[in-house]
């Protein structure tokens, strides 16, 4: 095994450890961490068994294996960004519904409190 492979493997394992730590401290949802974990796992496999990359390159008809790496990385990034866009849309929609419900509820509470205070004033 080459030195570079070792360094890459250590970095990847550290990243994996960091990810797991964040999930443990509930800073990251497993749902969103999963794609990153799969990504790190795949990178580890390619790092330890580089011939896999050459094999895929051959299958795709890509002359230089490193281009396969760029290509796959690019596809992965685009997919991740798209998924995030969808979830931002969903979140903003939910945020809108919640704000509206909150505004309606706030008015009812305000009016209840006002009628309460005026009632007690009347009693006194």
């Amino acid at each position: 095994m080459y030195k570079l492979q070792m360094i890459a493997a250590i970095i990847l394992l550290a990243a994996m450890g960091y990810l797991v730590g964040m999930i443990r401290r509930r800073k990251l949802d497993i749902k969103y961490a999963l794609s990153w974990m799969i990504m790190i796992g795949l990178m580890l496999i390619v790092d330890i068994f580089p011939p896999i990359l050459s094999l895929i390159s051959h299958l795709f008809g890509i002359a230089t294996p490193v281009n396969t790496l760029f290509f796959l990385g690019f596809i992965f990034s685009l997919m991740l960004i798209f998924v995030l866009t969808v979830s931002v849309s969903r979140l903003s929609d939910r945020m809108r519904q919640m704000s509206q419900a909150l505004a309606l509820a706030e008015k009812r509470i305000r009016e209840l409190e006002e009628s309460n205070t005026s009632e007690t004033e009347n009693k006194e």
Binding site: R96, S99, L102
Partner: peptide, 9 residues
């Protein structure tokens, strides 16, 4: 009478 939105929509 008013409704007060907590965030700008």
């Amino acid at each position: 009478p008013f409704l007060d939105l907590p965030v700008n929509l």
